[in-house]
Amino acid sequence: MADGTAIERRQSRVTAMLLLPTTLWFLLLLVMPLAVVLVFSFGERAPAGGYEAAFTLEQYANLPARLTAFTNTLTLAPLGTALCVIIAYPLAYYLAVRAGARVKLMLLVLVIVPFWTSFLIRTYAWIYILGGRGIPRLLDMVGIEDLRLINTPTAVLIGIVYGYLPLMVFPIYVSLEKLDKRLLEASDDLGATPLRTFLQVTLPLSMPGLVTGSLLVFILLMGEYLIPALLGGGKVFFVGNALVDLFLQSRNWPFGSAVAIALVVIMLVAIAAYLALVGRERTRSDASLI
């Protein structure tokens, strides 16, 4: 018995030691920094930039000064996510259901490869394509004149879809791949139209992948900086661009901290609302299946 507790004590010591570095990292580089940002958001800007201790809600009251950044983010991030879903779904469906077994793996790898190469470089390629000598020039030849693409919301949306499409295809593919193909046959045998089969069988069963994919993309988009910086040209900017400006250029740390806190809160609320909505839809469609 004494032997057993000795072993247990030894084991818990090993466990504690294994967890020690991660715990330190979490405390010093996650909990403490976020706490500092929270404290700073109630402070005042020092005359030379940076932070001066205070307790005021002034920074939060001042948030409407950056309203455009928030409205841009909150329209273009959900819109970009939705576009990714719409464009990724047919491809994921093709890969999971239609593509032959031989080419499937190859095609799948080809979707993922771009995601593993530099995001910065892939985004900057679009400066060429959307710029004056790219697509607008081609359109000019066929008679559509003076179309401006670069530095517009459209350019930012194209950048978003291009950057995050692989991240959306993959989870949808995984859930479609797991789907029992006999269910589709059964639905067909029972006289359902392909559309009805899709809406009542395929789509509900692929919801987990769709939800995972859209959460991944949405979360990354909420903090996006590079795409608006490169393709929005200072005209279409996100909260991320406002944050870079506040911390690195104008050095207004307390206000920047308030903007960062607001961004995280809005993001968490949006995720919670989305999950609640999806959960309700899911129980409703389950009920309709019965």
């Binding site: 580089l29 996650l30 403490m32 920094p33 976020l34 500092v36 940002v37 700073f40 932070y51 979360i219 990354l220 909420m222 903090g223 900086y225 991320g240 944050l243 870079v244 911390f247 740390w253 920047g256 901290s257 960062a260 961004l263 995280v264 993001m267």
Partner: peptide, 13 residues
């Protein structure tokens, strides 16, 4: 937490 917020928090702290 978005990478940009991690960046800011680490900088400030």
């Amino acid at each position: 937490i978005p990478g940009i917020v991690i960046g800011i928090a680490t900088l400030v702290a």
